[in-house]
Amino acid sequence: MKVLIVDDEILVRMGLKSIIPWEEKGYTLLGDAKNGAEAIEIFNETEPDILLTDISMPFMDGLELIRILKSRRPSLKVIILSNYDDFKYAQKGIQLGVNAYILKHEISAEKVLEALESLAGPFHSERPLPVNDKKNEGFHANLYRLFKDNLTEREREGILAALSGKLQGPPFAVISMLLNFAEPEAENGI
C-alpha cells in the first residue's frame, strides 16, 4: 500500500520516514508534504492508499485536506497525527471517515505500524514464508500479497509497479493458478 505523510513539522516528517521500515513492512512511502497544497499535488501524481496527516497546518488544515482528498477518492484511508487530545477533533475526523487518530507525543514505530496494519487489512499483515535475505523481505511480502484473492485491481497494479524493478536480472518466473476443488459431477451410467 502506498503512503503519503503530511505535516508542517519537518522533525515529525523526518521521524516518520526513518522510524518505520516501510519497504520491509510491505508499504511504499510516496513522500512527504509540508502543507495541504503540496499534499494535493503529490496525491494527484501518485494516488496514495493511506494518508498520515497533521490537523493543524498553515494554508489548509488537515481536516480540509481530508475532506478534499476523500471527495476525490472515497477509499483513501486516513490516519490523523495531532498534538490535540481533544474530542472535537476526533469527532470531526470520524465524520470525515478518518480511520485512526494518533497523538504526536505517543508516536512510535509500533503505534504507527499498528494503525497502518489495521487499515491494510488481514491480507497485508499475513507474513510470507521466512526469508533469510533481509533486504528482500519487503519484496517477498509484496509478492505474497500479489496473489491473495481479496486485492482490488488497483492494489494489484500498485504491487506490480513496486515489484517491476526487482523482477529484472536473472531469469524470474511468477506462476499464478486458480485451483477449483469442486466435487466432480457424476457421469450418467457409471
Results as ranks from 00 to 15, higher is better:
G97V: 09
A115K: 03
I94A: 13
K111L: 04
A109Y: 03
I94E: 06
L76V: 00
I94M: 12
L151E: 07
H124P: 07
I79D: 01
K77M: 00
L81K: 01
K77H: 04
R127D: 15
N136D: 09
S75G: 09
R154Y: 09
K148G: 12
N132L: 15
K135E: 07
Y89K: 00
K148A: 14
H140G: 05
D133Q: 06
S75R: 06
D133P: 01
L116T: 03
L146K: 11
R156H: 10
V131G: 08
N136S: 13
V131T: 10
L103Y: 10
A109W: 05
K92L: 04
D85C: 09
V98R: 07
K88E: 14
P130D: 11
L160N: 13
S82D: 09
K134A: 07
F139H: 03
K148C: 10
N132K: 12
K92C: 01
E155P: 05
F87C: 12
Y84F: 08
D149I: 14
P74L: 10
I107Y: 00
Q95P: 06
K104P: 11
L163M: 09
N136C: 04
E157V: 11
L76Q: 04
L103I: 06
F87Y: 15
D85L: 13
K92G: 07
L81C: 00
N99M: 02
Y84S: 13
Q95R: 15
I102Q: 01
K88F: 11
A115R: 04
L96D: 05
A141Y: 09
N83S: 14
R73K: 15
P128V: 05
A109R: 02
S82E: 04
P128H: 03
G93W: 06
H105G: 10
E110D: 00
I159Y: 10
P130Y: 02
Y101Q: 01
A161P: 04
L163R: 07
S108C: 04
K104E: 03
N150V: 13
G121E: 10
S125K: 15
K111C: 02
A120E: 02
G93K: 09
Y144C: 07
L119I: 10
L160G: 08
T152S: 08
K148N: 12
L116K: 06
L143E: 07
E114P: 03
A162P: 04
R145S: 12
D149G: 13
I159A: 08
K135A: 06
P74W: 08
R127H: 15
H140E: 05
N99C: 06
V78P: 01
F147Q: 09
L103H: 10
L143H: 09
S164G: 01
K135L: 06
L151M: 04
